[in-house]
């Protein structure tokens, strides 16, 4: 591993994201959808609070009147779904494009380790995602100026989003290393991500140990306690392992290209 090489690859990739407009388009779409859902959720909360003033039955529904429960947590949920839809669009070109245009041939014959190439690309994509996430800080800022949401769940929720996004990217970069077709790459990463998302729903159908294993594998289960304000090492370890495994598979996939 060579920090300088990683930095050079990182700079090139990041510039490429912004010069090809991919980053702008994805960020704008993301913010539009997230902003709309946030506004909708906030309006609903305001509506409930307003009605609760005159409706004593509604006023007893403490959970509905809690801004963290009614606005913050659902919005984190929405953001993670939008992220799931958007990250394959960011990752699909990383290796597929190089394979299609043949630039991979020069890249792999430059005096640079495969892992540096992967990390440079990974971090560039991660930076775009991070920009996306940071731009949503306007939502909690707005909440903090208008009401009194709990700060801790917001912070840990963001930690969860970052970890989850980082996991999405590592899977996306792996899918991209498998094919020279960007559409196939995006479809594969989207499919696998959705699978990791949906297995949480099958937990109730499977009993015993297997059910627990499935629950543990599910990618969105691990953000739940984080968005409640609880930092569980198990969740952090899950995401870090997820990232490491798919980066390792990407490395293998690049090596396998050489053998073909």
């Amino acid at each position: 591993m060579n920090i300088r090489s990683i930095g050079i690859i990182y700079n090139r990739e990041l510039k490429s994201y912004f010069s090809s407009l991919t980053a702008y388009v994805v960020i704008v779409m993301f913010l539009l959808i997230a902003g709309y859902l946030f506004a909708a959720q906030l309006t609903m909360f305001a509506d409930i609070s307003f009605k609760a003033q005159t409706d004593p039955m509604l006023a007893k529904q403490y959970q509905l009147l809690n801004i963290t429960e009614t606005v913050v947590r659902p919005v984190f949920g929405y953001i993670s779904i939008i992220m799931l839809l958007m990250t394959p669009l960011l990752t699909m070109r990383l290796f597929s494009e190089e394979k299609k245009t043949g630039t991979i041939e020069l890249m792999l014959t430059f005096p640079i380790n495969d892992i540096d190439v992967i990390l440079g690309k990974y971090l560039a994509c991660f930076s775009v995602l991070l920009t996306m996430i940071v731009l949503t800080f306007t939502f909690p800022a707005l909440l903090l100026s208008l009401g009194e949401p709990e700060v801790k769940p917001i912070l840990t929720g963001y930690l969860g989003l970052v970890l989850m996004g980082a996991s999405f990217i590592s899977l996306g970069i792996f899918a991209s290393s498998l094919t020279e077709n960007q559409i196939v790459s995006a479809s594969v990463s989207f499919g696998i991500l959705l699978f990791f998302w949906l297995i949480s729903y099958s937990v109730t159908l499977v009993s015993g140990g297997l059910g627990q294993v499935l629950a543990y594998l599910s990618i969105n289960k691990h953000i739940e306690s984080l968005s409640k304000g609880v930092i569980d090492t198990e969740d952090i370890v899950y995401y870090l392992c997820f990232i490491a495994i798919f980066l390792f598979l990407t490395l293998r996939s690049l090596e396998a290209n050489r053998w073909r």
Binding site: R12, S16, T101, E105
Partner: peptide, 17 residues
Amino acid sequence: RKKIGYLPERVPLYADM
């Protein structure tokens, strides 16, 4: 690879730079 300069047949370059 440190000792080599290589020009592949397809001349693959990054078009966006």
